[in-house]
Design a protein around this nucleic acid. Structure first.
Lengths: 341, 341
DNA sequence: TTGAAAGCGGTACCAT
DNA sequence: ATGGTACCGCTTTCAA
């Protein structure tokens, strides 16, 4: 293993030719540059023999491109994000790109710091679940010609490509499903947030409720508290305060998990006491007894559109930086919701 | 926003001084190099004013160090790995390091390709869940002075630092727990694998069974099949074939999820028909009804030891590259296992 | 058809 | 105390 880092220079010296020639051949420009076949073969064979690997750092420094895309999400340990991460990664590799992941924890400061760091490493593009405070940062990314594409939520005041789902429509439909099932008092459990996806989900619920002549009943988790048990207790208090609730619609799956725990502590039965529906499917919902109806986001499609979008931007710098993709969700009917006869 | 990428050269020119001086000051070597205070202040103020950011790529190219650590796991969408990822990332940032994640899918080919790629990007270290085929690749990483630390499993024939858990002991204890509970016919459900962690778990089970005078009964998932439903069916067949089974010990949580589905399809009750225990806790186990007893790995500690280990290696190249850390797990008693009176 | 050489943005050695 | 400069490994223009 005398793997003493072979450089393009070493090759040139060993073969008694110039660096330029080696570079051209390595980069598959033999034809274009009209290098003789014999020379090409000579170099290619030698490269293969010594196992030469280009130093990507140097390539990036020189070319300004790194073939790296940053995948910056709220929390990489959240299954929704890590599943997309996995799919993105796969697609990226197939296209010669690497992915760097990082979690912002919805902390604008941290996000800005991360973006700055990666800009200084010449990454080519960013896939981001933005916080509102990121607007100007993202704007400058775009003006500096980085690829940028948002997902999960977006920033209305910003012209920037994104891939999101039909939050409002699906929540409208989900609420209506509960209403048509015969539920009279449907509570919506969400987190206090001014992010578009959460606002849209809430608004979908509210519209459906009002259209059908009912009154909205919303519980908002004050902040994204890390102490989960606490949230469960709050939900429990909320349910105690409103004895007439007959259905609960959760805006995210982790809220639903809290809720399920609360129901259990209270000795409540699903779906007899409460019909339950959650946004954002999770494989546990199928396993739980009773299984929980949910609105599933098209993870595979999201990943696909994201990669398509960013690769397009990266291959064509004149690409429209304002390609808005909105994908439909899928309602998954399980045992926690049913038509009351 | 005239952010036209300011370089150290621009600063030198603007201030009419040399690049060297600027570099020294930026790197906090004013004192050491005895730069005058006035000059230092001049430069520092200018740097702050124009918002200069060093190009990490160029730094890396020159210094050979990048302050990047690769976190290469089997599957980043697996909650065990993504939770550790999250913790690692946090610790890394606190120490000025960035983390690059990637999934090997237990594919040695892919892993080697990834390692090669990252070597060519001058990353400083690797945290890896290795496959056996990676032995020589890892050996050469070590000889090339990269920081390397394995976790989850290790390679016995290789001298390399690692952080693992007491797989054998915990599975021995877990099995004994079931035996002491009064179970007579305990099945062990695992995957066919020659990775150390899986072998150790199996062996812990077998030893306890034999010590107590019973016969082992093992179901091995033939391969890591992606079609999960299939696995559940196989488990079901297995259970049908052995009517006397009264407890099932799952070697991983995803196998347990399959098993739970199988139990449900078969109309079996936990813990009346089967006592159930799973290696590798999951928050869902606490939520499921009945809640499932599990052996929890100390995620937080694992992340901590990993970072300590690799940072130590990176700060001191003479560090012993053979620091083996073995952490204890925690048995979590829930409703799926109980002492038969 | 091939080669020389100028950088990319830094670091660090050696002068002065 | 400061500055000049070679160099990290590669791309790319221009010349031969």
């Amino acid at each position: 293993m005398t793997n003493k880092k072979i450089s393009i220079k070493d090759i040139a010296k060993a073969l008694g030719i110039s660096i330029t020639t080696v570079s051209f051949i390595i980069n598959g420009k033999s034809k274009e540059k009209r290098i003789s076949e014999s020379m090409t073969k000579l170099v290619e064979d030698y490269v293969a023999k010594v196992g030469y690997r280009p130093n990507h750092l140097a390539q990036s420094l020189r070319s300004g491109k790194s073939k790296v895309i940053v995948f910056m999400v709220e929390d990489i340990s959240n299954s929704f994000f890590s599943n997309i991460a996995r799919l993105i990664e796969e697609k990226a590799y197939r296209n010669g790109y690497k992915i760097i992941y990082c979690s912002t924890e919805n902390d604008t400061e941290k996000a800005i710091e991360l973006i700055t760091t990666f800009k200084n490493r010449n990454v080519d593009g960013f896939i981001i679940t933005p916080t509102l405070g990121l607007e100007s940062e993202i704007k400058s990314l775009i003006s500096e010609n980085f690829g940028v594409i948002l997902f999960d939520r977006w920033i209305p005041s910003l012209e920037c490509s994104h891939v999101i789902v039909e939050n409002e429509k699906s929540c409208y439909d989900g609420t209506e499903h509960l209403i048509l099932n015969g539920c009279k008092r449907i509570a919506f459990v969400t987190v206090e947030s001014n992010q578009t996806q959460m606002k849209d989900r809430l608004s979908g619920y509210q519209k459906a409720i009002v259209v059908h002549g009912y009154r909205p009943l919303v519980f908002e988790e004050p902040f994204h508290t890390p102490s989960e048990a606490f949230v469960g207790d709050q939900i429990m208090d909320f349910l105690h305060m409103h004895k007439d609730i007959d259905a609960v619609f959760f805006a995210t799956n982790y809220l639903a998990f809290e809720g399920l725990q609360a129901f259990r502590k209270m000795g409540k039965q699903i779906p007899e006491d409460y019909q339950v529906l959650s946004f954002d499917d999770h494989f546990f919902f199928g396993l739980y007894q009773p299984s929980i109806s949910a609105i599933a986001q098209p993870i595979e499609l999201i990943a696909e559109r994201l990669m398509e979008g960013i690769l397009h931007q990266l291959s064509d710098l004149e690409a429209i930086q304002n390609n808005k993709v909105v994908l439909p969700n899928k309602f998954i009917q399980r045992k926690s919701t049913f038509r009351i006869e």
